[in-house]
Design a binder for these strands. Structure first.
Lengths: 191, 191
DNA sequence: CTCCCTACTGTCAGTGACTGCCAATTGGCA
DNA sequence: TGCCAATTGGCAGTCACTGACAGTAGGGAG
């Protein structure tokens, strides 16, 4: 990894850390990019160059991207439902709780996402994107499902995942996400 | 109905008509509120007072609101899936095609929604809101379903509806929306 | 019919997200 | 060492959206 790339990654991490801290303390809507830039010691323009939009300061997450990639990859072989379950089982539970040192924790980020109406739409959009990916994966899988029903199922599974995460947030991370997903699968498959 | 209320409704319809025309011709992102206001012969501030946001100029629709209300009402007695089917059956097919005189047609509006990435998030948000309403309706219904599985099902049904509408748009309104929904229900209930 | 209240509208000023352009710096590489 | 390209900062500008104030006109009370 280059010195340049390392510096770039460092700046991004620093900016995002400052941003999330401010968002958590004062609320997403009450924090301006100018404030973030000032506190992070960079130009406003630089924030935009790295993250594009204010939303991305919350949403951008390499770990999430990796997890979603994993889900979709598994879905192409074992189907959407089993794919989600397997991918979830492959993640150590403490990672979900955000007790790891990474970037301040997933739990805090999701809590922020849920507490901020301006960000709900973004979350739903991500959900439906995942749903379409799952649908494509399922129709490409050995099941030989037609594109349209595959898409319906993919979106349904993604919606279930979103509800599970939401319920998990309501319990403030106390509940076991894998249990919630299992219950969600039940609700989906019986009836 | 008052003269005031009538005038208000007239202004809103006129503004929305102008807006949709401009959006269709030049693209949503390329049209500013100022242009809409100028063409509709009102102040920019008035547009915001009536619609709140630019998105609402596309999304706002009394007929849609009535239909969604109908779906949710039926869902509280016969469940989400049957509710959607019944509500859909109660609407004359030509209404979907937008051949009616109302406000320029539903088909055109949905086409615009689909063609504009900036509006996708809004659409998904509306879908998930409907899903939650369906979930609440189902758990309040006689089925006696627990809140969590009810919510999962509600969202799944709403997601299915969104996919059906999307597929219907892909066929440019040629396909029968009721058939697509029926196939979507099949995809949801078998497996 | 008149007076007053209230809803609707317009105007103005301001905030904040986001973009394009240009210049300066600095790491990477031949 | 010298050139290229990436990173960054600064600046000006657009546009969505908001709060405050003022003028106008409908609607009801007397």
């Amino acid at each position: 990894m280059n010195l340049r790339e390392r510096r770039r990654a460092d700046t991004m991490r620093a900016v995002q850390r400052v941003a999330l801290d401010l968002f958590e303390r004062r609320g997403y809507d009450a924090v301006s990019i100018a404030q973030i830039a000032a506190e992070a010691q960079v130009a406003e323009r630089t924030v935009y160059r790295h993250f594009g939009t204010k939303e991305m300061l919350v949403v951008h997450d390499e770990l999430d991207a990796a997890f979603i990639g994993d889900v979709v990859r598994r879905a192409t072989t074992v189907g959407a439902i089993a794919g989600v379950r397997e991918a979830l089982a492959a993640v150590p539970p403490e990672a979900w709780r955000g007790e790891g040192a990474e970037a301040g924790g997933w739990l805090r980020k999701m809590r922020l996402l849920r507490a901020t109406p301006s960000l709900h739409a973004t979350f739903e959009r991500a959900t439906s994107t995942l749903g379409d990916a799952l649908g494509a994966a399922e129709s490409a899988a050995a099941t030989g499902l037609a594109p349209y029903p595959a898409r319906v199922r993919g979106r349904a599974v993604a919606a279930m995942l979103a509800v599970a995460v939401d319920a998990w947030l309501e319990s403030d991370g106390e509940a076991d996400l894998r249990d919630l997903v299992a219950q969600g699968i039940d609700a989906l498959t019986t009836g």
